[in-house]
Design a protein around this nucleic acid. Structure first.
Length: 783
DNA sequence: GAGCACTGC
């Protein structure tokens, strides 16, 4: 047994190998100053105004003056495109537009509940951008001794949890207002756009913000990113948070920062308030409303006086949706065998209910927990379907889950070929939020979903099927009423439904908050425990994250952010990966290009290697895959895969097909790779390499060792040693782990392993595993 | 011998 192992913590110290890390001082720190105040030199807006040599004329700094923009090409569009007028007028929201405008003229925060189909995402920004408070103003802002004039406001930001939503909504709204959506298509370096437009969007890898943009759709993460450079959001007059009920970590952080801005003294915005519209599709908004109303509940953000806080008004508005009624049917008794019950129900619906009516097709959408269950049910339905009487309509099954290829996913959205056929879509939670399947009038809800949860005490995640929340059950049922009256069959009793939680646990309470804490620290939040959050994570999660960040070198002994921590923030990856990238740039390792390839691959989505089910499939790809696999483990295998993929010049689609590699993820990996390469080059960590394709040279064993040591700099805690009984025992917690079957190291015994993921499903699984030497762990930790 | 869904200058 090795002694390089974490000793049981006494609560105040953590010991790994020879290194002892004290927890003291992490959680007792008092807030230094007002947390929302960033250092003046971090403010690029002010810097920008300086370098442009803005004349500092003496204007009243409290109210500011409206900046008149000559944009005559836009003025004729202000009424919007008449082509869409009738459709817009028919939306439930249309008659409430005056209410919305009236509320925001006096209040800073509007909480808007709008069910699916109310049109809130497209209409609310259009109702607001011509408001007087939405004009850009020039104001004087104090910067140390002197003051400078800057522009504040003018744009409305509207956030979305997903990239596709942000871009498609932007396209839709730009058509409605009648201005083109142009601009830099791919980051920087593009030519000046020729057209002005009112609508733009900004998501990772894709930015279109025409000059004159007043309405800008962004992902939540993108707005957080903008806040690092523009902490007061001076570009914007209003921020609209859409789909807040999904409660991503990003939206929770954004809400905290927004609360600080609206309840602070507004000096950073030259006295100009930021309006906030919170939009939710579920009615459960009491806690959210309370969060934005309550500005003195012990957080350090309400500013020097309560005067500012008392002016912050919050009003709530509810808009009915445009849904058809949905009949909800519970089972009278609990269902012991979900798969069997579901198949029976599908055929009952199929034989009793018409194939279509005046509203259109009447297809079935069933919510299941995962790929395996979906494939099992698909087999059962297909078996039974072949025995159907010839006079009955046919039945065709379409699986729908994230790992499916684009083409296979799209099949589920197309009308089924052959008129006399009913479509049955078997989906995971993907159909609850991310995609809409058209034609659905029957929903079957198994009442469960797989959720990933982080266990801070164990330092591991679990992925297990759990009962959904009421809000999810309602959301799922609603999928039956988009196109006509529908029915939802719940495979659980009414009593069971009543026992469900009202809302799902927000992500911030069930995930590793490492990135979230580092984001706060980088934004100048010293006392992370007093940062306003709708659902603050437990002390143990915060403590674990702080210690982990300390081990990564992102935080000092006094828990303040280090230079390394700031550099880590540059990369759109989790802190451990960011640490690996920084290590790889050091001269002793010198393997930045390789680690970029590997991290691009890993962070592009689920595993790039598709799961092979049948023996035939395995045989068909075995020869091809063999040249990718490396004895050192998965990290080197990813590297080889990426290198061979980029060396492939003829047909990359086919290359992926032959090897059963997820082409979509590979394309995403290439985007990430390009982005990381540009970031590293800009930071002076390396020179930009020659463009692809480059000839493939296998990585030498010596280089492989350096790469693995680099990864240890980020993943020293995720290591395990081979025990005498041939099991692997983790160095951090003395748990027994198994190498996941998807790893190239599965079934092999090596003296020590490093893994990038640690997930409990059916067992404690180490995933993305590499073979290492035990001595490397201490070696790397003591650097 | 096995994988819910997203995101990021």
């Amino acid at each position: 047994m090795s002694k390089k192992r974490k000793t049981p913590s006494d609560g105040n110290v953590i010991k790994i190998g020879d290194k002892t890390i004290s927890l003291e001082g992490y959680l007792t720190k008092k807030p230094r100053e007002q947390a929302a105040e960033p250092a003046p030199e971090q403010d690029p807006v002010a810097k920008d105004a300086q370098t442009k040599g803005q004349p500092s004329t003496s204007l009243p700094s409290d109210a500011g003056k409206v900046e008149h923009r000559t944009n005559s090409s836009l003025s004729k569009h202000l009424a919007g495109d008449p082509q869409y007028f009738a459709t817009r007028q028919a939306l439930p929201l249309w008659t409430r537009q005056d209410d919305i405008r009236r509320i925001l003229r006096t209040k800073d925060v509007l909480v808007l509940v709008g069910e699916t189909g109310s049109g809130k995402s497209t209409q609310v920004p259009q109702f607001l951008y011509q408001e007087k408070w939405c004009q850009r103003r020039r104001v004087k802002i104090k910067a140390g001794e002197s003051s400078q004039e800057v522009g504040v406001g003018g744009m409305i930001a509207i956030t979305q949890p997903r990239r596709v939503a942000a871009t498609t909504l932007a396209h839709r709204v730009s058509r409605e207002v009648g201005t083109p959506l142009t601009g830099q298509k791919d980051g920087r370096g593009g030519s000046r756009p020729a057209w002005k437009g009112l609508v733009g969007y900004s998501v990772r890898f894709d930015h279109r913000v025409p000059p004159g943009t007043r309405i800008k759709f962004l992902t939540e993460g993108m707005l957080l990113q903008e806040m690092l450079r523009d902490p007061y959001l001076r570009q914007y007059s209003a921020v609209i948070i859409d789909e807040i009920h999904e409660r991503s970590v990003d939206v929770d952080l954004l809400s905290g920062f927004l609360k600080q801005i609206i309840s602070g003294d507004k000096a950073g915005r030259g006295g100009i308030p930021l309006k906030v519209v919170i939009m939710s599709a579920t009615a459960n908004v009491e806690s959210i409303t309370k969060f934005f109303s309550d500005t003195k509940s012990g957080d350090s953000t309400s500013g020097p006086s309560s005067e500012a806080a008392s002016k912050t008004g919050v009003e709530c508005l509810k808009i009915e949706g445009r849904q058809f009624p949905v009949d909800i049917v519970h089972t009278p008794e609990p269902v012991p065998e979900i798969d069997q019950a579901l198949v029976k129900l599908v055929f009952k619906i199929h034989s009793k209910e018409a194939l279509s009516d005046k509203h259109g097709r009447k297809d079935i959408l069933a919510f299941l927990t995962g790929q395996e269950e979906i494939e099992a049910v698909q087999r059962l339905i297909e078996e039974h379907a072949s025995t159907l009487a010839p006079n009955l309509p046919k039945i065709k099954v379409f699986p729908l889950f994230g790992q499916l290829s684009i083409e296979a996913q799209q099949e589920a959205f197309q009308p089924v070929k052959g008129g006399f056929t009913r479509k049955v879509v078997l989906a995971t939670n993907i159909a609850e939020t991310s995609v809409t399947v058209p034609g659905v009038r029957y929903v079957i809800d198994c009442g469960k979903a797989k959720v990933k949860e982080f266990r801070p005490r164990l330092g591991m995640e679990s992925l297990l099927a759990k009962p959904i929340a009421k809000s999810s059950a309602i959301q799922r049922a609603g999928r039956a009423g988009r196109e006509g009256p529908g029915k939802c069959f719940r495979l659980y009793t009414k009593e069971t439904y009543e026992t469900l939680q009202t809302t799902s646990l927000p992500e911030i309470l069930r995930t590793d908050i490492l990135s979230a804490i580092l984001t706060m620290k980088a934004r100048g939040i010293d006392d992370v425990l007093s940062f306003p959050l709708m659902d603050p994570p437990g002390l143990e999660s915060v403590e674990k994250a702080l210690v982990h960040l300390h081990i990564l070198g992102a935080l000092d002994d006094d828990a303040s952010i280090t230079e390394t921590g700031r550099k880590m923030m540059l990369f759109p990856v989790t802190p451990p990966y960011a640490r690996v990238l920084l290590a790889a740039a050091e001269q002793q390792y010198d393997c930045l290009l390789e680690t970029i390839d590997i991290i691009s691959c890993i962070t592009s989505g689920e595993d790039i290697f598709l799961h092979l089910r049948s023996e035939e499939e395995k045989e068909a790809v075995e020869e091809h895959r063999k040249e990718l696999f490396r004895r050192e483990g998965d990290i080197l295998t990813y590297l080889t895969t990426m290198q061979l993929y980029t060396a492939e010049n003829a047909d990359r689609t086919r290359w992926c097909r032959d090897r059963k590699i997820n082409f979509r993820n590979m394309k995403q990996a290439m985007n990430i790779r390009k982005q990381l390469r540009q970031l590293c080059a800009r930071e002076g960590l390396m020179e930009l390499p020659p463009p692809d394709p480059q000839p493939f040279t296998p990585t030498s064993p010596e280089k492989a060792e350096l790469i693995l040591k680099c990864f240890l700099r980020g993943f020293a805690l995720k290591t395990a040693l081979l025990a005498p009984d041939s099991s692997y025992v983790t160095s951090a917690g003395k748990h027994t782990v198994q190498i996941h079957p998807s790893s190239v190291l599965h079934g092999r015994k090596v003296e020590a392993i490093m893994y990038l993921e640690y997930v409990y499903t059916q067992k404690n699984y180490a995933k993305k595993v590499s073979a290492i030497q035990a001595v490397w762990i201490a070696e790397v930790l003591n650097e």
